[in-house]
Nucleic acid binder design. Structure first.
Lengths: 181, 181
DNA sequence: ACCGTGTAGTTCAGTGAATGAACTGCCGGT
DNA sequence: ACCGGCAGTTCATTCACTGAACTACACGGT
């Protein structure tokens, strides 16, 4: 499986979780899925990950129930299942830790409650309305620590760099791909 | 550095965080530190991790400011810094996700507010007193999904399997090592 | 001074996984 | 028939992990 049969402590859910999402690249793939990436090629160019590794990671994530693989005609899409979406708190915690520890100019990306524009705190509450914010209502946008990239961007990177809702599918440069969801 | 110079996206704090704690074994080392492990040999036998890998991980964690290396005479202790303790939300989130997804009989380890015995929810609030619970006030103990191990246990595993406070140092089998903290 | 013990850390050959670039195969449109 | 876009494979090279044995050093006892 994912990890070399080690991590085999039956009494640690952290070890079990890391068997699924603890390998190199895996959490970055999941993060991109939260940002709306769904296509094999987009993951590959976005992360600059070897395609063979991407194949293997997606396969095991599908097997573990984190992603679902949808194939309509020639179009393949990988999208998060409920179990995958449930990884959001872990990703948010690591994002937050990375910002706190290594981004002296402030967060690189801010999370806001889309309905009322309130900042979302570490416990997932909206500072404006006080409520817990469901994942699809979270807007992510560049924060003070964000460094605008120089030069040309591929269309997918361009979309990811702008404010947008989590899980909102990326739709660029390939005809009228209706955001049916 | 930790990861192969890839992950080098300057605008993603998740990538930055994973450079520090995203390698194999690293988060398990940190978890053991929360459970009170401080000694090189204890990490090694507890995780059954090759000593060379442990050396390399501890070195980079010290360099990144997650651990502090204390040397008193012949005794070396690795303990979490504030930045290391700040990883707790990420570990808690992954623990929770692992329990939810892969532990049908209930959580393997329960977290409680030591002062009033209240269960701690996913947002780190005590169900009893309602407040946020600081890490050293969290008691961890076997939950319904815990499977008691069979056979003899080394003293360190035995201590980790019993209810205890996070960060409380393990003191067994080596004379009067006062828990000076 | 000497020896034994406990522990942090190193060395090293063998194995397995990641890398990157090129390639295959499928589908749809013209 | 041809072409372009895209999912996924293949493969030689490089790199990291594994596991077991070994070194280095501090301490305590005699």
């Amino acid at each position: 499986m994912a990890l070399p049969s080690t991590y085999a402590e039956p009494n640690c859910s952290l070890a079990r979780a890391l068997e699924v999402v603890g390998e190199r690249w895996t959490l970055l793939i999941v993060r991109d899925a939260f940002f709306g990436v769904r296509r094999f090629g987009d993951f590959a160019t976005q992360l600059k990950i070897p395609r063979a590794v991407l194949t293997s990671r997606l396969k095991s994530l599908v097997q573990e129930g984190v992603f679902r693989r949808d194939e309509n005609g020639g179009v393949v899409e990988y999208r998060l299942t409920d179990r995958g979406v449930a990884l959001w708190p872990a990703i948010r915690a690591l994002l937050h830790w990375g910002d706190e520890s290594y981004s002296p100019d402030g967060v690189k990306r801010a999370l806001r409650h889309d309905a009322d524009n309130g900042l979302i705190d570490e416990e997932n509450h909206c500072r404006s309305c006080g409520g817990l914010v469901p994942v699809p209502d979270i807007r992510i946008e560049p924060g003070p620590g964000y460094q605008p990239p120089t030069g040309e961007l591929d269309p997918v990177s361009a979309q990811i760099g702008r404010p947008r809702l989590l899980l909102e599918p990326i739709t660029v440069g390939r005809g009228p791909r209706a955001a049916e969801d």
